Measured scan of single mutants.
Amino acid sequence: QLRFETNGEEQAKKVLEEAKKHNLEAHVTIENGKWVVHVK
């Protein structure tokens, strides 16, 4: 499982879109005010 700390909602959405293009499972959590994308 990969973990990407992003700078906010915009970047998190871009990472999610990329993951979906590659048929990867991804979800976002907010940790300590940071948007974190988890990709399987």
Rank of each mutant, 00 (worst) to 15 (best):
K34S: 06
L2N: 06
V39E: 01
K13Y: 14
L24G: 03
E9H: 07
G8V: 11
R3W: 07
Q1S: 14
E18F: 15
V15Q: 05
H38Q: 05
Q1P: 13
E25I: 13
A12K: 01
A12R: 01
N7E: 14
L2D: 04
V39N: 00
K13Q: 13
R3A: 05
V28T: 04
E9Q: 09
K40Q: 14
N32T: 02
N32E: 07
K20H: 12
K20R: 14
H38M: 12
N7F: 12
H27L: 08
H27D: 05
K34I: 14
N23R: 09
V37L: 02
E9I: 12
A26R: 00
K34H: 08
K34E: 03
E25V: 13
G8L: 10
K13T: 10
N7L: 12
T29N: 05
W35Q: 00
Q1E: 14
H22Q: 12
E10D: 11
N23K: 10
K40V: 14
E31R: 05
A12V: 05
N7G: 10
E18G: 07
E5K: 04
E9M: 09
V39P: 00
W35K: 00
L16Y: 10
G33S: 04
W35H: 04
G33I: 00
E10K: 08
R3C: 11
E31W: 06
K40G: 14
E9D: 05
F4V: 11
E17M: 13
G33F: 02
E5H: 06
K34G: 03
G8E: 13
L24F: 10
K21F: 09
R3T: 08
E5S: 04
V37R: 00
A19L: 15
A19Q: 03
A19Y: 11
F4H: 04
K14F: 11
A26M: 03
A19R: 01
L16M: 13
E17H: 08
E9A: 10
H27A: 07
K21H: 08
N32H: 07
N7S: 13
T6N: 03
N32Q: 08
N32P: 00
I30E: 07
L16I: 12
K40L: 14
H27Y: 15
E10S: 09
V37D: 01
N32F: 07
L24M: 11
E5N: 05
V28M: 12
K14H: 10
A12F: 03
R3L: 06
K13I: 12
H22R: 11
V36Y: 09
Q1M: 15
V37M: 00
K40E: 13
E18M: 15
N32M: 06
E5A: 05
T29M: 08
T6G: 03
H27F: 15
F4L: 08
L2A: 06
E18S: 12
L24V: 06
V39F: 10
N23M: 08
V36R: 01
V39G: 01
E17W: 11
E31V: 08
Q11H: 12
V36I: 14
G33E: 04
K13R: 13
T29Y: 08
Q11K: 04
V37P: 00
Q11W: 11
L16W: 08
A12I: 03
G33R: 02
R3G: 03
V39R: 00
T29L: 07
I30R: 09
H22A: 11
V15I: 15
Q11N: 07
Q11T: 08
A26I: 04
F4G: 02
T29P: 00
K13L: 14
L24I: 07
L24Y: 10
V36G: 01
V28S: 03
E25S: 11
A19P: 00
E25Y: 12
G8Q: 11
K34D: 02
E18H: 14
L16C: 13
G33H: 03
K14M: 13
E17Y: 10
K21Q: 09
H27R: 09
Q11V: 07
E10M: 10
V39Q: 00
A12T: 04
W35Y: 08
I30M: 11
H22M: 13
L16P: 00
E9V: 08
E18D: 10
K20V: 10
G8F: 12
L16K: 02
A19T: 04
A19H: 03
V28W: 04
E10F: 09
H27C: 10
A26T: 07
K40R: 12
E25L: 12
V28D: 00
N23I: 02
F4E: 02
G33N: 06
L24E: 02
N7Y: 12
F4Q: 03
L2T: 11
V15H: 05
I30C: 09
V39S: 01
T6K: 03
F4S: 03
K14R: 13
E9P: 15
E9S: 07
A19E: 01
E25A: 11
L2G: 07
N32A: 06
N32W: 03
R3K: 07
K34V: 14
H22N: 12
Q1C: 15
G33K: 02
V36L: 03
H38V: 15
L24T: 03
E31D: 06
G33Y: 02
V36P: 00
T29K: 06
N7Q: 12
L2P: 02
K20T: 09
N23G: 15
L2W: 15
E10G: 06
E25N: 09
K21N: 08
K13M: 15
W35I: 04
E25D: 12
L16R: 02
V15S: 03
E17I: 09
V37W: 01
E25F: 11
K20L: 14
G8P: 01
A26E: 01
Q11A: 13
I30A: 04
H22V: 05
T29Q: 07
T29C: 11
V36W: 05
E9R: 07
E5I: 13
V36Q: 02
E18Q: 13
K14V: 11
N23P: 01
K20N: 08
K34P: 00
K14D: 05
E18A: 14
H22Y: 14
E31T: 05
L16Q: 06
K20I: 12
N23S: 08
E18K: 11
K20F: 13
N7R: 10
V15D: 02
L2I: 13
V28K: 02
R3E: 04
K14N: 07
E9W: 15
F4K: 02
K40H: 14
Q11E: 15
H27W: 15
E31S: 05
T29A: 08
V36K: 00
A19F: 14
A26S: 05
H27Q: 09
I30G: 02
K20S: 08
K34Q: 09
H38E: 05
W35P: 01
E9K: 08
K20P: 01
A19K: 03
T6L: 14
E10A: 12
H38P: 01
N23D: 07
K14I: 13
A12W: 04
H38F: 14
I30V: 12
L2V: 11
Q11L: 07
T6E: 04
K34Y: 07
R3M: 06
V15N: 02
V28F: 06
W35S: 00
R3Y: 06
E5D: 05
N7D: 15
T29E: 09
K34R: 11
I30Y: 14
V15Y: 14
G33V: 00
E31F: 06
V28Y: 07
G8Y: 13
H22I: 05
H22S: 07
V15L: 15
N32D: 12
H22K: 10
A26V: 09
H38Y: 15
V37N: 01
L24R: 08
E10N: 07
V39K: 00
N7M: 12
E17N: 11
W35D: 01
W35L: 03
G8N: 15
L16G: 01
H27V: 13
E10H: 08
V15K: 05
E25T: 11
E25R: 09
V28H: 02
N23W: 07
E17V: 08
H27M: 10
K34M: 13
A12N: 01
V28I: 15
Q11F: 09
F4M: 04
N23E: 06
K13E: 07
Q1I: 15
T6H: 04
Q1Y: 15
A12Y: 05
V37I: 08
E5V: 14
T6Y: 14
F4A: 03
L16N: 01
K40F: 15
L2Q: 09
G8H: 12
H27P: 00
I30W: 12
E17G: 06
E25Q: 12
